[in-house]
Design a protein around this nucleic acid. Structure first.
Lengths: 208, 208
DNA sequence: CACCTATGTTTCCACTGTCAACTTCTGCAT
DNA sequence: ATGCAGAAGTTGACAGTGGAAACATAGGTG
């Protein structure tokens, strides 16, 4: 005896509900293969209603990916802001924030970088904000004299590649201790820092 | 005027043909979303025939991914074997082979590491052979005294993460010069070598 | 030769993404 | 207030999908 369909004809905020529902469904077994009809079902609307807000399923996925990039940018900014003073600790904080973002949003992360995304998506300003966070921090580090003076975009690429790779390997369960030893993430971060910092020994402790 | 259906009832080698066809279709727009029915169509058999060889589509994709790991292992072995003497050049050769494998087999590479793969797949011996190539090379480098004496599995994780990340960013078109400068791949490799090698300056030329 | 089993085929089902036509609201100009 | 255009939702269709079931054929073994 649920309420006898006093649901209004117009949902009022369907677009948002569709996006939220879809993001939630991303982390279910089906992943991004979730069904548009099931989204509609959970939102309590007819199976064709979503088409009033998104031309097709790909458009919905693209929108979700963009939201993911915005969240990532916020997470990175927070991660570097919450670190001890100095560009290198900020970089470490940002790296940990990146990894945690991936671990907390596995399917979303995969969607953002996965196949099927429009190539131009990654180049859009909305998606590039996260990359700019890294570049800004590296520039600051060079200005402080703690990051080696090299082309900053190359360094950023190295950072991003390392973070991206670590995140995905972790998501794939490839960083299990039995395969890669304990503290593989820390080890990889150390290698990265040793490649970037002017005085690695100052930041990387315990060469064990 | 094609031959009037002299096709024998039994295909003879359907399993192999299905796998080959599927691998070929992987690099078409649909990617791993290719249709099992289309595979059957191209193989010239009925749409249900593939089910005699694979319990479902996921099983076919898993088999393909395993084949991919084997090919990757071969490519890595060849890449290091074809390099100048010494563990560090071999490592560089292996790195380039890794990147080229990804660039040459984008969809296959994504499939191998993508979501939806059984977690246990990556842990299987068939898939871990590639990882062992890296570990063996690093051990050799440490024995030669050219790779820093650190836990080798951690170093391997760093290598793999960097390669994995670079490969995927490249596939996503994120390493375009306009975003990341020229030679981003080389820059990232340099950072990695500077983090691994005992005497980086000996291997990494041109700081600037 | 007869028959068992692996491999293929046909037929069927529930379900999907998407479209078109229809209905019901909401907002705005009058 | 009124009336109407268009946005937002609904219903019902369609072709195509993955998969199951039942049937057909062929090759190999007694």
């Amino acid at each position: 005896m649920t309420s006898p369909d006093d649901r209004p004809y117009h949902h009022g905020d369907l677009r948002r509900v569709i996006i939220d529902t879809a993001i939630a469904m991303l982390d279910e077994p089906a992943g991004p293969q979730f069904t548009l009809r099931e989204v509609a079902r959970r939102a309590g609307v007819s199976h064709a209603a979503p088409y009033k807000h998104f031309p097709d399923k790909a458009a919905l996925l693209t929108e979700i990916a963009l939201i993911g990039f915005e969240r990532l940018r916020e997470a990175l900014a927070a991660g570097s802001a919450g670190a001890p003073p100095g560009a290198v600790p900020a970089l470490v904080g940002m790296a940990r924030a990146y990894l945690e973002f991936g671990a907390s949003n596995p399917a979303l992360y995969r969607l953002m970088f996965g196949a099927g995304m429009d190539r131009s998506l990654h180049l859009s300003g909305r998606a590039m904000g996260a990359f700019d966070e890294v570049i800004g921090l590296l520039e600051r580090g060079q200005a402080e004299g703690v990051i080696r003076p090299r082309p900053v975009r190359g360094q950023a690429a190295a950072c991003w590649a390392q973070m991206h790779g670590l995140t995905l390997l972790a998501l794939d369960g490839l960083l299990l201790p039995e395969k890669v030893g304990d503290g593989a993430v820390d080890a990889a971060l150390s290698v990265l820092l040793e490649g970037l910092a002017v005085d690695p020994a100052r930041w990387v402790q315990g060469h064990g």
